[in-house]
């Protein structure tokens, strides 16, 4: 007998994965019968500049957001972990976490309006300060940084909550002992906080990276991957192959590349973590 969880796993993970592997050897437009294509999809993929561009963009986005999430999330978590009025702490935590509860579609539309070059309030105030703001989403140089900024605004609260939970699990006696040994705040941070928080940091970094590598909504809604593919993400590239060009086989081949990349990077993170993650308490 298979347990319900195994059945769900087979239905929603194993079967789609096997189907994607199988489809990657076919040409299929959804409307007519699939045609076996051998390795043609993979050969095409090897010379597809757009997909390589999308992979590069997604790495840039993922690395930048992981850095901002880890650094920003940790700073906010430390700030909220200090002795604070209980109500104030709850209000601040809720305020920082609130954007996480909003759908990406709503967030994307809000920022498209907020950063509109003509009527958006951001450019209005920047102009009042005598600055010349860019056309955030239409200039290749500012489009990706804008999307990274929006992602940080939207998702930082999630990383912050994970890290705050990690900080709160560190026994206060260790800080007390460190203080008695003469350790200042900086020394306490590096000698107590970071080692004991390292498993949580590793978890948060993997979750952030995997989430960032699967980014789709803001690119699709705000920039459509432009200008000049400068914000095209790999998942968006797969979506266009599948549901704009109706080439399901090629889209499946691209999906497998994403799986492989995420697998390799996660394995790399886990391997490197042996050097800096401390599981002793």
């Amino acid at each position: 007998m298979l347990s319900p969880s195994v059945l769900l796993y087979i239905a929603f993970v194993a079967m789609p994965l096997v189907a994607a592997i199988t489809l990657s050897f076919f040409k299929w437009d959804l409307l007519t019968a699939p045609q076996f294509a051998g390795l043609a999809n993979f050969v095409e993929l090897a010379t597809d500049g757009t997909t390589f561009r999308a992979i590069g963009n997604t790495f840039l986005f993922a690395i930048a957001t992981v850095i901002f999430h880890m650094v920003g999330g940790l700073l906010l978590a430390i700030a909220l972990n200090r002795p604070l009025n209980r109500l104030l702490r709850k209000v601040l935590s809720a305020a920082i976490f609130f954007p996480v509860l909003m759908s990406w579609a709503a967030v994307s539309l809000i920022w498209r309006y907020a950063l509109d070059p003509n009527f958006g309030f951001v450019n209005y105030y920047l102009k009042q300060l005598g600055l010349t703001p860019p056309n955030w989403f239409a200039d290749a140089s500012s489009a990706m940084p804008s999307l990274i900024g929006i992602d940080v605004w939207h998702s930082l609260g999630y990383t912050m909550v994970i890290l705050l939970a990690g900080l709160q699990s560190i026994p206060p006696t260790l800080y007390e002992a460190a203080r008695l040994d003469g350790a200042g705040p900086v020394r306490q941070f590096w000698s107590v906080t970071v080692p004991l928080l390292s498993p949580t940091l590793l978890f948060a970094s993997i979750i952030s990276f995997v989430g960032a590598f699967q980014i789709f909504d803001p690119m699709f809604i705000i920039t459509k991957g432009g200008p000049d593919n400068s914000t095209l993400s790999v998942v968006q590239d797969v979506y266009y192959s599948a549901f704009r060009d109706f080439d399901m086989g090629y889209a499946s081949a691209k999906s497998l590349i994403i799986v492989a990349v995420i697998l390799i990077v996660t394995m790399l993170q886990l391997r490197l973590s042996k050097r800096w993650v401390n599981y002793d308490k």
């Binding site: 079967m15 096997v18 189907a19 489809l23 409307l31 019968a33 699939p34």
Partner: peptide, 18 residues
């Protein structure tokens, strides 16, 4: 078994399409 499922799905695809 998984490959059989995929093959069945593809046959299904061809039946549903066109």
């Amino acid at each position: 078994a998984s490959l059989a499922v995929s093959a069945t799905m593809l046959v299904g695809c061809s039946a549903a399409s066109g």
